[in-house]
């Protein structure tokens, strides 16, 4: 139970941490200053959310670890984020579609978590759901704007959607930690999260004039620490400082 609870918390934290890291790669490279700042804001929201969870994990483990140990000193197989969030930014279309897929799940997951039997986790969910609402509005607007934009923007969005479709379902398949946490009322039922997430998703995709074909086979493994080839590179960048100068502090 304690093992599953920790894994569940890390899985949630890792999703936000890794996506936050990916988004922060746009910092200084955004298409315009305004959206460079917007994406950095979202990245910071997500990393902030992960911090609350890592801090809590450190308290639960009570073995001298700090919040920093989780993102900076774990190995690839010890991260439990879904494959979607570690996929490379590529262009604005891929970044926005990835964000939109994540946000649809994230907001409804957090809303569900706000009723968790773990009061500390429900508090974190309540606080961060407000941010997630804005993230979803932001990414939805871009999906509609570009999907319903020029011929090129539409093609790029459709390509991004087709490319990332296989990663979407993993968000909704309960991993072993989630199964245990659903039993004890800490994690909400994934079926209802899926239903709400897809209602939001389908509506926006329709408004954007894009077509979404659910892939027959989806990719998964992240929840068990089996990652795509991109994860190692991401961690190499993210963990470089602590690996090179162990214990380095600001």
């Amino acid at each position: 139970m304690q093992h599953s609870r920790l894994k569940f918390i890390l899985q949630w934290a890792d999703n936000s941490m890794i996506l936050g890291q990916r988004l922060s790669e746009w910092c200084g490279h955004g298409p315009v200053l305004e959206h460079d700042i917007a994406l950095t804001n979202i990245a910071l929201d997500l990393i902030g959310e992960a911090r609350y969870l890592y801090q809590y994990a450190a308290v639960l483990e009570a073995n001298g670890k700090s919040e920093d140990d989780y993102p900076f000193l774990r190995k690839e197989q010890e991260f439990f984020n879904v494959l979607l969030v570690e996929q490379p930014n590529e262009d604005w279309a891929v970044t926005m579609v990835r964000q939109f897929m994540f946000d649809c799940h994230h907001l409804h997951f957090l809303n569900g978590m706000s009723g968790s039997d773990d009061p500390h986790l429900s508090e974190i969910a309540l606080k961060t759901a407000k941010e997630a609402r804005y993230h979803l509005k932001y990414s939805s607007d871009w999906v509609i704007r570009l999907g319903d934009g020029t011929a090129e923007s539409k093609t790029r969005m459709q390509d991004a959607l087709d490319k990332l479709a296989k990663f979407q379902n993993e968000l909704f398949i309960p991993g072993e930690a989630e199964v245990e946490m659903i039993k004890v009322g800490i994690c909400p039922d994934m079926g209802s999260i899926r239903e709400k997430a897809f209602a939001t998703f389908d509506e926006v995709i329709k408004e954007a004039g894009l077509t979404f074909a659910k892939p027959a086979v989806g990719r998964s493994g992240g929840k068990n620490g089996i990652h795509s080839e991109h994860m190692g590179y991401l961690l190499a960048t993210m963990q470089y400082m602590q690996r090179t100068y162990p214990g380095l502090d600001w």
Partner: peptide, 20 residues
């Protein structure tokens, strides 16, 4: 001031740039 493709985007950009 800021740049945006339309008023709705300007409002969002303003939120991100000026109310952080």
């Amino acid at each position: 001031s800021l740049h945006a493709s339309d008023a709705a985007m300007a409002l969002e950009n303003a939120r991100d740039v000026y109310t952080r």
